[in-house]
Computed example of a mutant assay.
Amino acid sequence: MPIVSEFYGIKILMYWNDHMPSHFHAEYGDHKILVDIVNGSVLKGIFPSKQLKLVLAWCEIHKDELIRNWEAAKEHQNIQKINPLI
């Protein structure tokens, strides 16, 4: 599972050929969530409030890049790194 981005101790990951809807995985310590790319909402899991706000803000900023990565992953193509939140 490629790491797409890392910031403030948060890892953003994507799987190749993952299930719908389009989403990414985020990890922070022992916390894990799945985030819907289009809606910017948590599909599954729990994150601390501060880190959740960072992830959702990052998702909104990079939505187009995330969708491109989702499409590439469905075709087993390269998943590109995305700039971290700074």
Rank of each mutant, 00 (worst) to 15 (best):
I33F: 05
G40W: 13
G29K: 14
G29P: 10
H23V: 05
Y8G: 08
Y8E: 15
H25C: 04
D18T: 08
V35P: 00
D36K: 03
M14T: 03
F24C: 02
G40F: 06
F24L: 06
Y15V: 09
I3T: 15
I12R: 01
A26K: 01
L34W: 00
H31M: 07
F24P: 00
H23C: 06
Y8M: 11
I3A: 09
K11I: 05
P2R: 13
H25W: 06
M1A: 12
D36S: 07
I3C: 09
V35I: 12
D30C: 06
E27R: 10
D18Y: 08
H23E: 07
H19T: 14
I12C: 01
L13C: 13
G9T: 08
S22D: 11
I37W: 02
P2D: 10
P2N: 09
D18G: 09
I10K: 00
N17R: 15
Y28I: 07
L13V: 08
V4F: 03
N39Q: 14
M20R: 11
P21A: 08
F24V: 04
G29D: 13
L43M: 14
A26R: 02
S22K: 11
H25G: 04
E6D: 10
K32P: 02
P21S: 10
I3K: 14
L43R: 05
M14A: 05
F7V: 03
A26H: 02
D18W: 01
G29W: 06
V42P: 04
L13G: 02
V35D: 04
V42R: 04
G9L: 11
Y8N: 15
H31C: 13
I37E: 00
G9I: 14
L34N: 08
I33H: 01
G29I: 02
L34C: 07
G40R: 10
K32Y: 10
G40H: 11
I3Y: 04
N39G: 15
M1V: 13
G29F: 05
L34H: 09
L13E: 12
S22F: 11
S5I: 08
I37S: 03
I10A: 01
L13Q: 12
I10L: 07
F7C: 04
V38C: 07
N17V: 12
E6K: 15
V4T: 04
E27L: 08
V35L: 02
S41V: 13
E6S: 15
D36F: 02
Y28C: 09
Y8W: 13
H25R: 07
F7N: 01
G40I: 13
